[in-house]
Design a protein around this nucleic acid. Structure first.
Length: 816
RNA sequence: GCGGGCGUGGUGGAAUCGGUAGACACGCCGGCUUUAGGUGCCGGUGCCGCAAGGCGUGGGGGUUCGAGUCCCUCCGCCCGCACCA
């Protein structure tokens, strides 16, 4: 058969040309009653060439898209590029080449590869987020949020990366280091733009219950939002005539508060210490803490440090005067920047009290040693509350505080507002100008986009490189026409990617970001697919945007992604692939060597797609062998039968014909279930392999029509994973285009057998198998089982206590 | 420390509802074909044992007629958050 060789490149080119010419995967924005589905993979960040993670991501998404299409749905399956961002700009600084040039070269390479992989993309909706026709609307959304008060400017201690010379969002700081370059970040007091995502904390939390997302992602988001219920309690400082409130989740332990601690950044700290013997020490301590790295400060292992402030506050529940301290374990960003310290029932306060010799008082019974953080009855508190369970006492104490005007119930979140301004060049300009008379003025919508000007020097100097583009910066105030200066910061790229999935729905609309009716045809995305690394950042921001846009009545959904699937990484020798490790392998070389179908089917066959999987060249060979086998079988059968319609239901099925038909219908059922309810592509592909193996084994003994059916069915079922080979084989056998034929239906009646194998156990151990009628009664099965020699040997001389019979499945003798 | 997940042959993995552990694939062994073949086709392959048989899903315990699957406990690995009051 030397002349008959599986030539994936010829086959793939042929079908790709057809899909391209006929625009097969484009879908119209109409509602004609056809059920619709929006299948979306996270858009790639175009840097260099696509890697294995992309291949896996889009192979998963394409399988889902194809499966839904063939089940009668009109599927929106678009593609775009998250084109703004730091790596392109850093490259520009190094090489002097404009980031647009490098980015667009990379986009071209992604486009080439997506086509060569045969991903079924609606190319008519493609865009890059760096194109003015896109970022015009990013700016428009910014203005809408600004109008609503959801975008605002404030001075705050922010994360600053000295290497990238820009501020970072909280979410972009990993273990105190810059997410991008790994440099240790510093805290700087700067005026910056924020989105008020904290206003949405409760909705972001509650609506997690309305979406079908992986449990671990939901948990991560929940933890990130970090909702804590408790109370705000007022401690007054009579010496200074000031009240300080603290947030606590444990007002039940108020009677155990023996000191009070403020964060070093607290604005009152120096004033409080002024004139006391501790003034100098406090000043030194604060300066020292502020110069510390975030990472050192966050080290929970090190000994607690702090300095007395020389002042005291009154505990509102018992009038006790307790000393004030400043200590770096209290954070300015959370709660009020001050805490009541209860060393008996909080480990951190306990550590501090131990170092400083402060009193430690037990006010909750239970546990052996202090600190004790569990529940129990109140003790040493007040006659009114002692003896009460602490949870009941908590409610009563807060009620009392509320009546006395000394506190109230309160909720705190770990979530902070989203810092979106970046002192960088390669991003969407923030559409704001500063006027001496009118202050912060939004650019009128009609003037959008604020075009990103071309510049020469990209190097950041602690301010945006855009500041050097004088012609661009100097403008006129939209209100008074007087001289004004443009905002020179650009937006975080996460702003761009927080709404791109909306734009796909109406990508060519030049009048608006989207038409709400058109958007409603598709949004929200029915299935979103991407890496877990976006579990918090992108997936939280996109949810916030959709909620904010819904409040602006610009759309009518509350969540962007109904269902989410997070794929695992492809590793090599158990390690993450990276340029620095030099263990990168690229999809291109495999596509060139084996064809796209092999590469695609392999990344899905390698294991469950939500788990990490290690790349193996031998494994690729195995999948390639399988596809070649299917193609060869198809060619052989087609030579024998010619193109003909699929075999209908069998008249009098028997023998090998019946068995092969059964296997085919079993495979249809198996693949359908593996695709419909879950993402079990690995077992789906295995089922098609079984069908092909079965067809090979029985091919000499079955009628041509049976073999034809089995082979065409295998091609039809493998289509979502290896679309080119599937199309080729299916066409050779039937003359039809497989993607235009409906997904096959399993004849479940055919799968039912008259004679089944029944397992016989004695005390739960397998002793024999018997062939029995599927309709045999319990008594018949037990009787049959008792005749078996191996069963007799095992129950002989023993007492049969019980017999368990599961009809058509098993018989278990319980003997003693 | 808190939260989440995982642990099955030589390897990747399968077992969807508590009912035959190891599908499919890799690797390995054997046969056939072609032999120029590193192609193709067929068969075998959890471990111990000549066999009968025994053992076997990280360790220990439990529930059950029956546990990879449920419960408790310990060990190991991975991920996320981390002085969040």
């Amino acid at each position: 058969m030397a002349e008959h060789r599986y030539e994936p490149h010829d086959i793939e080119r042929k079908w790709q040309a057809i899909w391209e010419r006929e625009r097969t995967w484009e879908v119209p924005n109409i509602d004609d009653g056809t059920p619709r589905s929006y299948v979306l993979e996270m858009l790639p960040y175009p840097s260099g060439e696509p890697h294995m993670g992309h291949l896996k991501n889009y192979s998963v998404g394409d399988a889902v898209a194809h499966f839904r299409r063939r089940n009668g749905m009109r599927v929106l399956h678009p593609m775009g590029y998250d084109a703004f961002g730091l790596p392109a700009e850093n490259n520009a600084i190094k090489t002097g080449v404009h980031p647009r040039q490098a980015t667009e070269a990379s986009i071209a390479s992604f486009q080439r590869q997506f086509r060569s992989w045969g991903i079924s993309i609606d190319w008519s909706r493609e865009f890059g987020t760096h194109e003015p026709r896109y970022y015009r609307w990013t700016q428009w959304i910014f203005l809408k949020l600004f109008e609503r008060g959801l975008a605002y400017r404030k001075e705050a201690a922010v994360n600053w990366c000295p290497k990238d010379a820009t501020v970072l969002a909280n979410e972009q700081v990993i273990d105190g280091h810059c997410e991008r370059c790994g440099t240790q970040v510093e805290l700087r007091q700067l005026e910056q733009w924020f989105f008020r995502i904290t206003d949405y904390a409760d909705r972001l939390l509650d609506d997690l219950e309305t979406i079908d997302w992986p449990h671990h992602v939901v948990t991560m988001q929940r933890n990130w939002i970090g909702r804590s219920e408790g109370a705000e309690v007022t401690f007054s400082c009579p010496e200074m005539g000031v009240d300080y409130s603290v947030f606590t989740t444990r007002p039940d332990t108020l009677f155990g508060a023996t000191f009070f601690v403020m964060a070093p950044e607290h604005p009152d700290v120096l004033r409080l210490a002024a004139g006391t013997e501790h003034e100098l020490a406090v000043r030194e301590y604060v300066n020292q803490v502020l110069s510390e790295s975030r990472e050192d400060r966050a080290d929970t292992e090190r000994k607690k440090t702090g300095v007395p402030l020389g002042r005291s506050v009154i505990n509102p529940v018992n009038g006790e005067r307790i000393p004030m301290y400043v200590a770096d374990y209290v954070l300015m960003e959370y709660g009020t920047g001050a805490i009541m310290a209860v060393p008996g029932h909080d480990e951190r306060d306990f550590d501090f009290a131990t170092v400083f010799g402060l009193p430690i008082r037990r006010v909750i019974g239970g546990g052996e040693d202090l600190p004790y953080a569990g529940d129990g009855p109140l003790v040493n508190s007040s006659p009114e509350f002692d003896g009460l369970n602490n949870r009941d006492a908590l409610e009563k104490i807060v009620d009392w505080l509320d009546r006395e005007g000394k506190g109230h119930r309160s909720v705190n979140y770990r979530l902070r507002d989203w810092l979106l301004s970046r002192q960088r060049y390669w991003g969407a300009p923030i559409p704001i100008v500063y006027c001496d008379t009118h202050g912060i003025v939004p650019v009128p919508e009609a003037d959008l986009p604020v075009q990103l000007p071309d510049i020469e020097d990209y190097a950041p100097q602690g301010r945006s490189p855009l500041a050097a583009a004088e012609d661009w910066v100097n403008t006129t105030c939209p209100v008074c026409g007087g001289p004004a200066r443009r905002e020179t910061d650009t937006m975080d790229t996460f702003v761009d990617s927080s709404w791109y999935f909306l734009r796909y729905c109406d990508a060519n609309n030049d009048e608006a970001a989207w038409d709400p009716k058109t958007l409603a045809l598709w949004a929200p995305a029915d299935q979103y697919i991407g890496g877990v690394e976006h579990a918090i950042l992108h997936l939280m921001y996109a949810r916030f945007f959709v909620k904010a846009l819904a409040d602006l009545e610009l759309l009518d959904i509350q969540e962007p992604f109904k269902a989410l699937f997070t794929q695992g990484m492809i590793t090599r020798d158990g390690a993450k692939m990276s340029k620095s490790k030099g263990n990168m392998i690229s999809p291109v070389s495999y596509v060139e060597r084996y064809g796209a179908d092999t590469a695609r089917a392999y990344v899905l066959f390698i294991g469950p797609p939500d788990q990490d999987a290690d790349w193996s060249d031998e494994g690729v060979e195995g999948v390639h062998r399988f596809l070649a086998r299917l193609w060869r079988l198809g060619t052989e059968v087609a030579a024998q039968t010619g193109q003909q319609p699929l075999l209908g239901p069998l008249e009098a099925p028997a023998g090998d014909d019946l068995e092969l038909m059964r296997k085919a219908h079993w495979a249809i059922d198996k693949v359908t279930n593996d695709m419909a309810g879950r993402f079990a592509f690995n077992t789906a592909i295995a089922a098609v392999m079984e069908l092909v193996n079965e067809a090979y084994r029985r091919r000499e003994n079955v009628k041509p029509a049976t073999l034809h059916f089995a082979t065409a069915t295998a091609a039809s079922l493998i289509f979502p994973f290896g679309p080119h080979t599937a199309s080729e084989v299916y066409e050779a056998l039937t003359g039809e285009r497989v993607w235009e034929t409906p997904w096959p239906d399993a004849d479940l009646g055919l799968l039912e057998r008259d004679v089944v194998e029944v397992v016989v156990q004695v005390n739960g151990k397998l002793r024999d198998r018997i062939q029995a009628s599927a309709t045999s009664t319990r008594e018949e099965l037990e009787a049959l089982a008792r005749e078996r020699p191996n069963v007799i040997a095992h129950i002989d001389g023993k007492q049969v206590m019980k017999v368990i019979v599961v009809p058509a499945k098993l018989v278990n003798f319980v003997v003693r």
